[in-house]
Design a protein around this nucleic acid. Sequence first.
RNA 1: GCCGGGGUGACAGAGCGGUAAUGUGAUCGCCUGCAGAGCGAUUUUGUGUCGGUUCAACUCCGACCCCCGGCACCA
Length: 462
Amino acid sequence: MLVYSTLSREKEEFKPIKGKIVKMFVCGPTVYDYPHIGHAKTYVAMDVVARYLRFKGYSVFYVQNITDIDDKIINRAREMNIKAEELADRFLRIYYEDMEKLNVKSVNLFARATQHVEEIIEQTEMLIEKGFAYESNGNVYFDVSKFSDFGKLSGQKKEELIAGARVEVDENKKSPEDFALWKSMKEGEPFWNSPWGRGRPGWHIEDTAISLNYLGESYDVHGGGIDLIFPHHEAEVAIAESLTGKKPFVRYWLHTGFLLVNGEKMAKSLGNFLTIRGILEKYEPMTLRFFLLYAHYRSPIDFSYELLNEADEAYKRLDTSFRRAQRSEGTDKEGGEDRELKETLLSCKHRFFEAMDDDFNTREAIAALFPLAKAINVSPLSDVETVSEVRSFIKDVSEILGLFESKEEKNIKPEIIDAILDIRKMLREEKRYDLADRIRAKLSECGIEIEDSGKETRWKIS
RNA sequence: GCCGGGGUGACAGAGCGGUAAUGUGAUCGCCUGCAGAGCGAUUUUGUGUCGGUUCAACUCCGACCCCCGGCACCA
């Protein structure tokens, strides 16, 4: 299996540090507002990464941090006249809800910054002891000049960074590129006590405090949005490698491409800020999930409702076909081997897994599913053995992509539907269409859509 | 200025030395009591430009043009 790492800028064979164990960390959101569809893109992509690794037999421990204290939270809370903590709690809950809806369920542990202040302080102290950080008026900064590898992840040279820096001048810092590990308290801000007085953690160190704590000094996968490469991830590398001396801190750096709206970055000021909830008011969660996975995770997506509608059509096509296969038991009554279906399944499986093994290419993997859907639609589904193989494959696909999961079909006995449809069939044969249509309407009210297709009537749960 | 990513049919977007996936859209059929879905066919001179390497280039190399992102808030 090949995985593209930002550090090497190429696809590398995936090999975890220790056997079949994969330790994975993804930068979570800052919880000060509703999560937007850009968050959804990153977290859905990383969800599939974790799911696929698990499917391949790896035991994945997946940690996501939650930034629940920072300037944006403090400012927003002040505007709303509530405590920072209250604001963070509220939006963290909303984040969990949105992720749940999008079927993002692979995270083992969400770690909040404010619950790891002790570790952050310890790390900061250690960095000072080792000479990589210095205290200045109650603030603590990482001294970038002490870490010669600074810039290796983002491919920047230190001199260039300084030259192009738009850093605001902070007289507490020795050098503009130094970054805060600990920020001293300003009037009215939330605080924690520390050896440098009251204050709060800087942003970058919360991730290293959490990851070193739960994943160890060196781990396998670190993911996040492409915008985090610099300075955030660069700073993490600097902190962790200075602290432990172990290189590399992270083996594979995975960065997701940006989600754009009308070719531009989403921003409140541009008025193109789209929240997950906003989209889910009009679209099924699985449509959004499909839309996001119907592109490679490293590619940018230029969001538009036209494309979302397109994804909606495409997803339903697959879903309808797959559900039909899932429900069919196969009758084996005649015809015997269904060669067409069998061969399509084989090539589909091959293409699907080859694509997934190639840096989680979900676009290509999904493209491989369409011929199978067509074969299912054409097939009488009477070859018990092949149908059961198809079903098992769909189940795997569903587990990997988190799509095509059957809804509450368990609560409905197919035999009852079949009995009703049998009566309706008789009515249709007698041309009593008023009653047949009434049955169709009533079933539709119960959430069961039926479709007459030749002699056969197909149904699905809407 | 520095660092990334990219330009493929109407639109979206894979592949990456030899026949250019796939989806959406459009058109026409088939099926059909109606509805829906499906099936079949068709569809656009389709690989940014100019050179080079090669028996063969969308793919490799060079130059150029254009688009997007990052550069100390950010998924």
